[in-house]
């Protein structure tokens, strides 16, 4: 696993599994096998590792995000997805490895949680103009894009979870980023709104050419919207173009045919977690859209 093949999936049981075909679809990332960060990428990291209290949180993680590309991180709870994002954003320091950020990097960030203290009085409009040179018309336009035009004069502390997420996304877009980082952006957004948000992000990516790093639990949407998927379980155990990854025997076994139990199997496979009867434990991440077992394969789009 050291040279990060592009679409090998979790090769613990099949270290030499049939992954040759996967390389065909790889558009970028040809420097990934090198140990040096990719200078062309917006953000490039090599061999990132992090420990907390003797526990391995991340180990040997390589990742590149280039302009115009949507990269999605998937993986079970506790896989280190959010931690990896925090390292890439510079919110936390890694214990080992290298991160290179392009000099002109301009990040738009949508954190997992956006809870505003009620003690702070601030309207949405003010929040969206803090540190930015924007007029009310710009703000109205971007709020319309994310479907939250009606909240412009509201207090931040009065927003619902979904509205808050849209407002932070609006701020991220207003910054004219070349890298958009979204950590589970659809929390508190209903299914229709979710599909719309992904469509919007995909469209803006095409229009503006920014790179996107997405953390998600939702395999349906991930498969439809991503250019590249990285599945993480403390190390990168799977990486590649969604279609190819989705056809990969390992992937199908983990996420496809048995999607209903995908994460449970996944954890079982890697962590050997069992309940008292010896069956794989149901994973806590049941906020994943649990689909019926047949026909739930990824890559068919977010219906």
């Amino acid at each position: 696993m050291t040279d990060t093949p592009h679409a090998t999936c979790c090769g613990h049981h099949h270290p030499h599994g049939p992954h040759g075909k996967a390389h065909d679809h790889c558009g970028h990332e040809h420097a990934a096998a090198a140990r040096e960060p990719d200078a062309m990428a917006l953000v490039s990291a090599r061999a990132l590792s992090l420990r907390r209290g003797g526990r391995v949180i991340l180990e040997g993680v390589d990742i590149d995000i280039v302009a115009g590309e949507i990269v999605t991180l998937i993986g079970p709870n506790g896989a280190g997805k959010t931690t990896l994002v925090r390292l890439l954003l510079g919110l936390e320091a890694a214990d080992g490895g290298q991160i290179r950020r392009r000099e002109d990097l301009r990040i738009g960030y949508v954190p997992q949680r956006f809870d505003i203290d009620r003690a702070l009085p601030m309207t949405v409009e003010r929040f969206l103009s803090l540190g930015l040179d924007v007029r009310r018309a710009d703000i109205t336009a971007v709020l319309r894009d994310v479907g939250a035009e009606h909240v412009i004069d509201r207090q931040l502390a009065q927003l619902s979870g979904g509205e808050g997420q849209r407002v932070v996304l609006a701020r991220a877009l207003l910054r004219r980023p070349n890298l958009l980082v979204l950590d589970e952006p659809v929390r508190g957004v209903d299914a229709t709104g979710e599909a719309e948000l992904y469509t919007l992000i995909g469209r803006l990516r095409t229009e503006r050419g920014f790179g996107v790093l997405l953390v998600s639990h939702d395999l349906h949407v991930v498969m439809a919207a991503s250019d590249r998927v990285l599945c993480l379980n403390r190390h990168v155990c799977c990486s590649g173009v969604p279609k190819t990854v989705a056809k990969h025997p390992e992937y199908v076994r983990l996420f496809g045919a048995e999607m209903a139990r995908a994460f449970a199997i996944y954890e079982h496979h890697h962590d050997h977690a069992h309940d008292l009867a010896g069956r794989p434990m149901p994973d806590a991440s049941t906020d994943t859209q649990v689909a019926p077992t047949s026909g739930a394969r990824g890559g068919e789009g977010a219906a």
Binding site: R86, L89, G90, L91, Y109, P111, F114, I116, F127, R171
Partner: peptide, 8 residues
Amino acid sequence: VHEELAIA
């Protein structure tokens, strides 16, 4: 408003 957002 949001410390991590600001730092990012």
